[in-house]
Design a protein around this nucleic acid. Sequence first.
DNA 1: CGGCATCGTGGGATGAACCAACAAATGGAC
DNA 2: GTCCATTTGTTGGTTCATCCCACGATGCCG
Lengths: 155, 155
Amino acid sequence: MTTADDAPPARLLELPTWLISQTSVHAHRLLAEAFAEAGSRGYHYRLLAALVEYGPASQATLGRRTGIDRSDVVAALNDLADRDLIERSPDPSDRRRNIVTVTSAGREHYRRLDTGLTGVQEELLAPLSAAEREQLVQMLARVLEHHSGRTPRAV
Amino acid sequence: MTTADDAPPARLLELPTWLISQTSVHAHRLLAEAFAEAGSRGYHYRLLAALVEYGPASQATLGRRTGIDRSDVVAALNDLADRDLIERSPDPSDRRRNIVTVTSAGREHYRRLDTGLTGVQEELLAPLSAAEREQLVQMLARVLEHHSGRTPRAV
DNA sequence: CGGCATCGTGGGATGAACCAACAAATGGAC
DNA sequence: GTCCATTTGTTGGTTCATCCCACGATGCCG
């Protein structure tokens, strides 16, 4: 036993990837709490956001927009439909498709989730000034833009 | 179909938590690739790093230092022991404990993983200047410090 | 001595992401 | 117009990281 017995390897603390992962873990925890409070999960929020922003769409399109696998979209939409937050109706012009629509309750629910989300941003970035947050967002966006070749994912 | 058919909800792109999660996903992918190339995973690197930095330790201590659950430490150490990268020996002064030691092959392996890791940082933050990287690290460290109440995790 | 905490270990449980396969339906190429 | 490749919704199953619980063995404190 050389030192404190907890205290992570110092090497990790200088690795951006580690810092980002750790921050992401905290973010996940906060988000999960916020969503759970409203009885939802990240998938639900993302789907609702896509529907609210772009309007009705087929499930496959929703999957593409949100970066969620087709099969997972099915499950999440089932949840949302059970709570009458969305509706599925067959597409008359293409009988393979379901047209998914947000209900007004769905919009309401989305609004609730979204304000919770805004609170989480505040909580996560508490120690940063507004200018710093702005800069952080800008840098991360640049990084993501640069890697936009592959893979979307988790809220 | 209102728009591009892929294209994520714009709301997400302004949420720091989302940007961080996404960046973390990319980091994970790059790290997994780098580690896989050397036939290892994040747990292995973290454990080796703790051993190299702090010297021999019990499994429980390793768990605390790396933030890995005791039971998962067992599995990861089994892997490392199978490849003769670490050794377990009973602690004479406390027969509950195993003293875990890196072998020289282990140190070598750690060095290899670590240079791979350094490359990944470069790759991930490619679009940022040195000054920006420095600032990013500084901001993230500050955020983590602020939330140091609970939960460490994943490389 | 006796109760309580700690250690290594095994056996799950969970949640997010991913992949394979299928039947029904569509859309082109010829 | 008829075939073939593709798309869609859906089921079912896999992987990976994390976390929790229980157990027997051991150590420590009063």
